[in-house]
Computed example of a mutant assay.
Amino acid sequence: MLARIYRPAKTAMQSGKAKTKDWRLEFEPASARTQDPLTGWTSSTDMNGQVRLNFETKEEAIEYAERHGIAFRLHEPQEAPIILKAYADNFATNRKQSWTH
């Protein structure tokens, strides 16, 4: 029963950074999913695949896993650089490219 601890990335429908500050503990799948031949639905006998635990800090998630004897793998997030831009930069006189319209 291996778990992974990570910070979820923002979804494609988000423009802000809401719900990306917390850390999440999820269990890796223990068995492969099977497909029902009649309906085509997928199923699994692994109930830990449905468990998602959220924590405010990485240390809380690690402490929880160690306290309950859960083996885990920690995934550190890769931070993207934040480029601040203003609308007024489109009309600046020291632009590197000419403004086309």
Rank of each mutant, 00 (worst) to 15 (best):
Glu63Pro: 00
His101Gly: 14
Ile82Phe: 04
Pro29Val: 09
Gln35Asn: 03
Arg24Cys: 04
Thr45Gly: 15
Asn90Ser: 08
Tyr64Arg: 07
Leu25Phe: 03
Val51Gly: 01
Thr34Ala: 04
Thr57Asn: 05
Lys10Asn: 14
Lys10Cys: 07
Ser31Ile: 13
Val51Trp: 06
Phe55Ile: 03
His101Ile: 13
Gln78Met: 11
Asp46Met: 13
Arg52Ile: 06
Thr11Gln: 15
Gln14His: 12
Gly16Ile: 08
Arg73Pro: 01
Asn94Gln: 10
Gly16Asp: 14
Met47Asn: 08
Asn90Lys: 08
Pro8Cys: 08
Arg7Met: 13
Pro81Trp: 11
Ala3Asn: 01
Glu66Ile: 03
Glu59Gln: 09
Lys21His: 03
Tyr6Lys: 02
Arg73Ile: 14
Ser15Leu: 10
Ala30Cys: 07
Pro8Gln: 07
Asn94Ile: 04
Glu56Asn: 06
Ala32Thr: 09
Thr34Ser: 05
Gly40Ser: 01
Ala12Thr: 14
Arg4Trp: 02
Phe91Cys: 00
Ile5Gly: 03
Met47Leu: 13
Ile83Trp: 08
Ala30Trp: 04
Thr39Ala: 02
Glu79Ile: 11
Phe91Asp: 11
Phe91Val: 10
Ala71Trp: 00
Ile62Lys: 09
Glu79Lys: 14
Ile62Asn: 00
Met47Glu: 14
Ala9Ser: 15
Lys96Ser: 11
Trp23Ala: 04
Ile70Phe: 12
Glu59Ser: 06
Gln50Glu: 15
Thr100Asn: 12
Ala80Ile: 07
Arg95Phe: 07
Ala86Cys: 09
Phe27Asn: 01
Asn94Pro: 00
Ile82Leu: 13
Glu76Thr: 04
Ser15Lys: 12
Gly40Met: 01
Leu2Trp: 06
Thr11Asp: 15
